[in-house]
């Protein structure tokens, strides 16, 4: 069925391929264009550098008039990211606009990594360390960045390759 939301998602996918943004990538699942898998690479020259973070994006038939539900599938230590991977970001909530697309959403989340907003904490420990003990905060983030590589190895595809 070709609805307005699905047509828009096809446009989003075309734009991602023709004009790929730096350090992010996304693709709809083969059997369902309303669910996407995405990757965000930690921004260069920040403590997040080298991190590979997986996300899922769930779109509704109201897209682009309603924001998708975006969640990290990789464990992250960040003031604005909940333990279950949910993201506290204004443009995904009350500041959503229908002019945003997949590329804009992922780029915004990428910049949130190195530019957190400790005033609306989703992870109070990360927010506290960010404000009070930046050295320890950086250490915890770097540990998560390294863990994100290990996470990569647990990927089903990777396991299949190892078995082959």
């Amino acid at each position: 069925m070709s609805t307005a939301a699905r047509k828009r998602l096809i446009r989003d996918f075309k734009r991602l391929q023709q004009d790929p943004p730096e350090g992010v990538n996304a693709s709809p699942q083969a059997e369902n264009i309303m669910t996407w898998n995405a990757i965000i690479f930690g921004p260069d020259e920040t403590i997040w550098d080298g991190g590979v973070f997986k996300l899922s994006m769930e779109f509704s038939e109201d897209y682009p008039n309603k924001a998708p539900v975006v969640k990290f599938r990789t464990q992250l230590f960040h003031p604005n990211i909940y333990a279950d991977g949910a993201i506290c970001l204004d443009i995904l909530q009350n500041q959503w606009s229908p002019i945003y697309d997949v590329s804009a959403i992922l780029t915004s989340i990428q910049s949130l990594l190195s530019d957190p907003n400790p005033n609306s904490p989703a992870n109070s420990e990360a927010a506290r360390l960010y404000n009070e003990d930046r050295k320890e905060y950086n250490r915890r983030v770097k540990a998560m960045v390294e863990a994100s590589w290990a996470d990569d190895g647990e990927d089903e595809d990777a396991e299949e390759e190892e078995e082959a």
Binding site: R8, R11, D12, P64
Partner: peptide, 14 residues
């Protein structure tokens, strides 16, 4: 069009 991303000279989705 910034919302549907289709050309103004074309059609919106519906």
């Amino acid at each position: 069009c910034g919302i549907c991303r289709m050309p103004f000279d074309g059609c919106p989705p519906d």
